[in-house]
Amino acid sequence: MRRATLWLLLALLLAAAGSLAAGKVWVPLDAWSSADPRSIIIVELRLPRTILALVVGAALGVAGAAMQGYLRNPLADPGLFGVSSGAALGAVCALFFGYAAQAWLLPLFALAGAAATMALLALIAGRSASLVVFTLAGMVLTSLTGALTALAISLAPTPFVASAIVTWLMGALTDRSWNDVWLALPLVAFGVAVLARTAPALDALTLGETAARSLGVEPRRLQRAIVLGVALTVGATVATAGVIGFVGLMVPHLVRPLARHRPGATLWPSALAGALLVTVADILVRLVPSASELRLGIAMSLLGAPFFLYLLLRLRRRLA
């Protein structure tokens, strides 16, 4: 476990360095000195973008691991279960009503949207729902928030608003500034801290809700912590980078063997692996030869959907 964590950290450092260098303009790392004109690319574009990729990836990884542990559902993911689309709907409402002029209103709406969908999911889960019922509920929430978002687009007061919404919905880390970093970082840090504190309770839930309660887990408190933590991490991510799905689904699966399948011990490795995955993916979308840059959210879905199918095939017997 320790050694695997060290390897993850090392890979993360390499990926971050690569993310500073890679792009339309290759900037060698020795161009850092202020005399080199290319240093501005690093400091004002690549550095905030890289930090944001790390923050967004860690946030989505932890949120996915916490949701899977809490819902005892290996298919749970903030993207698939509607939390990201809830956050997006909140943000879209802010754009639609023109509130986005105030920098803090869009993230606030995104957080509220994420919190509302996560609370709905938790309410359904509170009554010991089965894997199937729960996955279906998540899918329904996704399509409902998706439909409302589409409604907002079709009713958009001006074409500019519609196009702003559409561009924004496709998650990306292109042209992000330090402002985005300063917005996302504290919210995500707080959210990750809240989720990390639920680790023992998530472990206890391995035995089901009744046994977890007999071990001293207080379901209401745990639910509040999960809703708050997921809302902060996912809301902040969606507010700064748009919808990036499947990270929260894939990452916990990949690191679970390292944590010997304990849901609480999966949280921190998921943060590291999530940061690694998003950073590497964000390097790759920059390197794909195309007229305009491939959107990160789209790339992640292209990668994640087959992974989801593979998981479904593996779970087929349990679900039947």
């Binding site: 206890a204 089901g208 304990r262």
Partner: peptide, 29 residues
């Protein structure tokens, strides 16, 4: 939780943990 141990009828184990990790859950309180 420390004073009253409860063993439910359902033998639920939701994740494929090893036996020692499962037993260690009893120490959570």
């Amino acid at each position: 939780a420390r004073r009253i141990g409860f063993l439910p009828q359902q033998a639920d184990v939701h994740w494929d943990v090893d036996v020692r990790a499962l037993v260690a859950l009893g120490r959570l309180p």
